[in-house]
């Protein structure tokens, strides 16, 4: 009944490993935390370099192009463009390695 060898559909063989179609609110919360952490790191790099009197193209470009967590629309935060999906959007948790990659921008109009 319980334990690692319980008889559930994913464990009794075959390819049944389902990913829910939407994120839970706790997943969303942790995702926002991760986005904010990356924002913080970029800000740290920017202030540290500015104090040295240096600047960096990659950081400048990130600041110019990438929205921060607060600026992002919920649609872009939690879903991602996919041309194969009906209505062109799927949950961001379907993206491979989604907790360790930055995926903030989507094609305009989608």
């Amino acid at each position: 009944m319980f334990g690692p060898f319980r008889l559930t559909n994913p464990l009794s063989g075959g390819l049944l490993w389902k990913i829910p179609w939407r994120l839970s609110r706790h997943q969303k919360y942790r995702h926002r935390e991760r986005l904010r952490r990356v924002d913080g790191i970029v800000a740290t790099l920017d202030t540290a370099l500015a104090r040295q009197g240096e600047s960096m193209k990659r950081v400048e470009r990130w600041k110019l192009e990438m929205p921060t967590e607060g600026e992002m629309l919920p649609k872009d935060k939690y879903t991602v463009f996919d041309r194969k999906v009906k209505r062109y959007r799927k949950g961001i948790h379907k993206l491979p390695k989604w907790t360790r990659v930055s995926q903030r921008l989507n094609p305009p109009g989608f």
Binding site: R34, V38, I41, V42, L45, A48, L49, M56, R58, V59, W62, R100, V101, S102
Partner: peptide
């Protein structure tokens, strides 16, 4: 800083 930008999601 450029190296950190490459791995900013991990560190």
């Amino acid at each position: 800083a450029g190296q950190i930008m490459r791995i900013k999601e991990l560190v």
